[in-house]
């Protein structure tokens, strides 16, 4: 094969995560052959133990950094990657495991492990971008299959991905959904949550859980004021903001403020 027709190499890396976002790539069933035609899958342990040495043209990184070893490893991944795209709430915001950022990890270790001294862990779970430069962050817990394809597609075609950072409300209205907050009184994070899921939960009459993290203009304080008026108390507001994107700046700042505010 001549270098002119060499397929770009793709690597998929796992840090602290549940593997669900990597699995999304394997879930691209109808498009898998087209992907395999377009890229050389060089490193993807969830798919195959056969690996090709780097450097890699495109690295997809799943998971957050929670150990000193991973804080080192992400640097070598970055060094071996022409483009590095983080995928999922763990890699872009620290994930659900970032709840440790609000707690005492030493205390957890004593409760959970018989021999805490065997455990080497950091006191925080942090996104990849806190450690190395990242070319694009793809949000979601898990990521959306169509958006993952769009990111790979945009990379292959040398264009910017069509991924919008506006609210989930825009997707609800495009689908013709009836607003669950206005018409049902359901607490919903849609107005402050980054689009991408296609308004999945509101389409099934549930409030948005904020899986894609804060939208470009997220104002959790203003939404909290409104949800409080509709009967959600501060304890529940903190719980709503502290899920998969608990450590994302806008969500973290407001949940911390609420926790400190006198009740």
């Amino acid at each position: 094969m001549s270098t002119a027709t060499r397929r770009p190499t793709l690597a998929v890396w796992k840090f602290a995560s549940c593997d669900g976002c990597q699995l999304t790539l394997l879930d691209c069933e109808d498009e898998l052959l087209a992907i395999a035609d377009a890229v050389e899958v060089a490193y993807f342990l969830e798919a195959t133990r056969a690996t090709v040495e780097g450097p890699y043209d495109l690295s997809l990184v799943e998971g957050s950094v929670t150990t000193p070893a991973d804080a080192e490893r992400i640097r070598s991944v970055r060094a071996a990657s022409r483009r590095l795209v983080t995928i999922g709430a763990c890699a872009t915001a620290g994930g659900i495991q970032a709840l440790r950022n609000f707690a005492d990890v030493e205390e957890y270790l004593g409760i959970v492990y018989a021999t805490p001294s065997y455990i080497e862990t950091l006191s925080t779970s942090t996104p990849i971008a806190a450690h190395v430069p990242v070319d694009f962050e793809l949000r979601g817990c898990p990521i959306d299959r169509g958006q993952l394809l769009e990111v790979v597609n945009a990379f292959l075609n040398g264009r910017a991905p069509e991924i919008r950072a506006h609210s989930v409300c825009v997707e609800c209205k495009a689908r013709g959904n009836v607003c669950v907050t206005v018409a049902h009184g359901t607490a919903c994070l849609g107005p402050i949550t980054h689009a991408g899921c296609g308004a999945l939960c509101p389409s099934y009459h549930r409030g948005c859980y904020g899986c894609f993290g804060p939208s470009e203009s997220a104002d959790p304080r203003a939404l909290g004021d409104e949800l409080r008026r509709r009967g959600t108390d501060d304890v529940d507001l903190v719980r709503m903001l502290r899920t998969f994107n608990a450590a994302a700046d806008a969500f973290r700042a407001e949940s911390t403020r609420l926790e400190r505010a006198p009740r």
Binding site: C179, P191, D219, D225, E226
Partner: peptide, 13 residues
Amino acid sequence: ARRCLSCANCTLV
């Protein structure tokens, strides 16, 4: 601006 969520609902309805 303190109340507005920039969610775009007004413009889309």
